[in-house]
Amino acid sequence: MWADTDVKAWLARAADSDVWWSFKSSTLTIVAAGATLLIIAIALLSPLLAPHTPFDPATLSLSDGLKPPVFWSADGDWTFPLGTDDQGRDVLSSIMYGTRLSLLVGFASVVVAMVLGITLGLLSGYLGGMLDAVIMRVADVQLTFPAILVALLIDGVVRGLISVQRHDEIAIYVIVGAIGLSFWVQYARTVRSSVLVEKNKEYVQAARVIGLSPLLIMVRHVLPNVTGPVLVIATLNLGLAIISEATLSFLGVGLPSTEPSLGTLIRLGNEVLQSGDWWITVFPGATLAALVLAVNLLGDWLRDALNPKLR
């Protein structure tokens, strides 16, 4: 329960802060934040907002196939404002649902990476010794391999272990796991170095003397210090994760074409791009670019805002 005054005080403090000031003074950032929120809102509400349910084969009808966008040709149909693909799937609805999937995969894999990275970073920094050496060596090795490659490897292994049919069902978990696992190193390194700095400070020593659990100390005192950097990494990673998912789906090892994400939509559309049905690729492509651009702008701004040296 927060008292009213607490909230007000917090808001006042927030409004007074450097970060807020820097946010207010950058139009581009405000636009990016607005665009991100808008895209997220539309994606979340897609079951309510979307005119069709493109993932349900029972609602698709081939007789609606290949309709052009309404503003492009007189053959357009207002039921399908951005046109349809060759299965009669509404492009607008597909984009809404597809964005939702892409965002879901993006957020989920960032969370996986963050939890894993922070935990390992804390353990590694605080306990040190063998564990630290092993974790950091593994991190080194993993840095060898770009995220997309790690994700591809994990996907390939899972394909070897289970049947194709099962693979389509669990594709989304595989993707989240694969992308999440490929991004943890940055968090772990950041948290670890922060722990190393704090570990020997006097207040930590004092807390240890009065018998507080070391883990509690770390969580209470060290984590808040790394919130900023972790947030910056997370925001930038979100953009990368969304791109990674799209790339995997484009390569045909991501989400199946019956439940397409933005990347899958682009792959499907790319196959017919030269025949003049440009809308099947261009709209999902533009949505993807806009989403990632907005998220990256936010991440960029956040990094500069939290690193006053650069201002």
Binding site: I243, A246, T247, F250, L273, L288, A289, L293, N296, D300
Partner: peptide, 14 residues
């Protein structure tokens, strides 16, 4: 350059 990071490489190739 931000646009460059935001466009997936496969889209650029196409």
């Amino acid at each position: 350059s931000l646009v460059g990071v935001s466009l997936p490489p496969f889209l650029i190739g196409i």
